[in-house]
Write a protein that binds this DNA or RNA. Structure first.
Lengths: 237, 237
DNA sequence: CAGTGGTCTAGACCACGGT
DNA sequence: CCGTGGTCTAGACCACTGA
């Protein structure tokens, strides 16, 4: 990227994560940062706004910006502590099993959820996520075939997102999530190692590209004891 | 507020919510909006950035901004569908029962969570939220007495937040949330109408003021069947 | 090509905190 | 009082879209 304020953001975010900028200490003032990076104040402000939005710093009028303690925060990063991150934190190797990969005609409900007609084709991908040989998460993905024409077993076992962004050059832009707790279905019981309680946490995810087209609907069904969602939220009028 | 871009944001957000700006249609261009509101482009862009951040619109380079369908989105607003909002959507009268209101000395864990010393005093507030005569949510609040010196039964039954913002003039700025599913404790069973499963959704909330001081730790324990969390998330580098 | 949004600049004035 | 961040302006150039 050749965008100055994003470069500055990334540099400063890295410094905070590495602990080079000490939590609770003051950041250099905007004027100082202007000189240090040799950019205009507006550019510095854009970088600082990004840092603030993502929970790295807090700006206080008349005083300055202070570094927040991201470790005490148990860092949110992406909102959802995804399967990969979860596995990394537990220092265990994640494993993915592909259960289903097929093209289907959507039923009425799915057609509405994906904003496609009943005659369009949709990829249906079902994967089981394992940690320490236990089946923890059941991922059900539905992807508009018009947007992603081909999908292979390798892509599904690796990362569908990477394929979309890197190979197809599409930009994932925003998503709407919904989290509920539901009774486990027969499908859940079949694929997951559930405890006696038979409840699952269901994360429904509608994912949009940068041109606002909906391209994927995902349902992620988690074992309750392994589920954790962390969120950093700023007030916004 | 006398801040132009926030006024413009509020006006446009209201138009979208009322349906005066039609979903999937194009917004006027930034140039047009500059003239319409008689402000600079930067001001318009700040308003549009806020709209984008909160899921009202999507900006597309080279094309324009389009209005997103917030109804299809089942609108997130504040992230967490709080007790009040939940009750409003169900068109039922919410009811709050105050179980505990006292000053305590924090134990080690709480002292760390609230960043206070063991000799400081902390308000402990426990409330039960009822809908249709069922006990749905158990709210446990711990508030730094240094920041909120007085707390009465009336305030707890109304809204602690309103008291803090309106009466004390403090600004709530950001929060960190964590959502997990846990086995119900004796306290949960005592106060909530649980089903056979005895699980609760636990929402832990660390709330900060605009000067980055932590002033409240809240634990909200929900009956699983009445819990729902909605989130709109934009990608941010 | 013209129009759009994205980035960047330089300068102005304000409200706030602390001296 | 000065230094801080917050708001606002005017103008410039770029990359992208679509005719």
């Amino acid at each position: 990227m050749n965008i100055k304020y994003i470069n500055i953001y990334n540099e400063m975010a890295a410094e905070i994560e590495k602990g080079e900028l000490i939590p609770r200490s003051k950041l250099p003032s905007e004027n100082e940062l202007m000189q240090r990076y040799d950019v205009s104040r507006d550019t510095i402000r854009k970088a600082l706004d990004l840092l603030a939005k993502n929970g790295y710093i807090q700006k206080i009028k008349g005083k300055g910006s202070i570094v927040l303690d991201i470790n005490k925060f148990d860092f949110p990063v992406s909102g959802l502590v995804s399967f990969k991150e979860l596995a990394q934190k537990m220092e265990k190797k994640p494993e993915t099993v592909l259960v289903t990969l097929q093209l289907i005609k959507p039923d009425e409900m799915l057609a509405e959820q994906l904003h496609v007609s009943k005659n369009d084709e949709v990829w249906k991908v079902i994967r089981v996520r394992k940690i320490e040989n236990e089946n923890i998460i059941l991922d059900k993905d539905f992807i508009n075939k018009k947007i992603v024409p081909t999908l292979t077993e390798e892509i599904c076992l690796d990362s569908i997102y990477e394929h979309i962004e890197n190979t197809l050059g599409l930009q994932i832009s925003f998503a709407k999530k919904e989290i509920t707790v539901e009774k486990a279905t027969k499908e859940d019981k079949k694929h997951l190692d559930l405890d006696s309680c038979n409840m699952v946490v269901v994360v429904k995810n509608y994912v949009y590209l940068s041109d606002a087209t909906l391209f994927q609907y995902t349902e992620s069904r988690h074992r309750t004891d392994k589920f954790r969602f962390v969120d950093f939220a700023r007030r916004s009028y």
